[in-house]
Amino acid sequence: METRVRSLVKALIWNIIGLGSMALVGFLATGSIAVGGVIALINTAIGFTLYLLYERIWSRIGWGRDHV
């Protein structure tokens, strides 16, 4: 089972990557750095929360794991 700290670090790193890509997409779509940044921040906050919950749920599911 993963620790909560590991799940948190994974979620943070993944969302930093997502923040950068979403800021770029938002900027390209709107032409505004400010609007692109707001879109990216909102998306990152939602994505971070959902990803962390998703990881924690899957950490409790034994299906598909090797039990060595």
Rank of each mutant, 00 (worst) to 15 (best):
T49I: 14
D66M: 01
A34I: 14
L41E: 02
S7M: 11
A23D: 00
G20N: 12
N43K: 05
S32D: 12
T3S: 15
L53W: 09
T49A: 15
W14K: 05
L19Q: 03
V35N: 08
L19S: 00
A23G: 12
Y51E: 10
L8Q: 03
R6I: 00
W58C: 02
M1P: 07
F27D: 12
L8R: 01
L12R: 01
G62M: 02
I46F: 09
F48D: 01
I13M: 04
L52Y: 15
M1H: 09
S7Q: 09
A34D: 10
I33M: 14
V5F: 14
L52G: 00
T30I: 07
W63E: 12
I42V: 15
L28I: 14
E2F: 08
L24W: 14
A34G: 04
H67D: 14
A34H: 11
W58G: 01
T44P: 01
G37S: 12
I42E: 04
Y54L: 04
G36P: 03
W14I: 08
Y54V: 00
E2N: 06
W63D: 07
N43E: 11
S59P: 03
L19R: 03
R65F: 06
I42H: 04
E55L: 12
W58S: 05
G64N: 11
N43P: 04
E55G: 01
A11I: 01
I13W: 06
